[in-house]
């Protein structure tokens, strides 16, 4: 079973995403802040990371930096609001994230993108 790390401080969003991904048969690890996210990246064997940009303690860009440095093979999906600065999104893509999903989003669309990335 493939394992996905979800880093999202909004309980409702993370629960919805977790619910949807579990429905598709994935194992999920849910954390609410950047520090816990980095700890999970270091301790878990992950197949995919889904992270928000604006999260407590460490932002999404720092998480991406850490993940690419320590787990370069693990794909990353960034989940973020459209209102956030364009340069942050560009920076995320430059770092090599697999996908970017702007909020508001459709969880079914997220599930399809996850499936596609994990099949590659």
């Amino acid at each position: 079973m493939k394992k996905i790390l979800i880093i999202e401080d909004d309980l409702l969003i993370s629960s919805l995403v977790q619910f949807r991904l579990k429905k598709d048969g994935y194992d999920t690890v849910l954390v609410k802040d950047g520090n816990a996210g980095i700890a999970a990246i270091d301790s878990e064997i992950l197949d995919l990371i889904i992270t928000d940009v604006m999260i407590p303690f460490k932002n999404g860009i720092e998480i991406i930096h850490h993940a690419i440095k320590t787990k370069p093979q693990t794909p990353i999906i960034v989940l973020s609001s459209l209102g956030e600065e364009e340069k942050v999104v560009l920076e995320a893509f430059n770092l090599g994230v697999a996908d970017f999903i702007p909020k508001p989003f459709n969880p079914n669309e997220l599930a399809i993108r996850v499936k596609r990335i994990l099949r590659l």
């Binding site: 409702l12 508001p104 989003f105 459709n106």
Partner: peptide, 14 residues
């Protein structure tokens, strides 16, 4: 509050 928050962050048939 939760339904309103979801309504803002979701799209499509949700």
């Amino acid at each position: 509050e939760r339904i309103l928050a979801l309504n803002k962050k979701m799209k499509g048939d949700f």
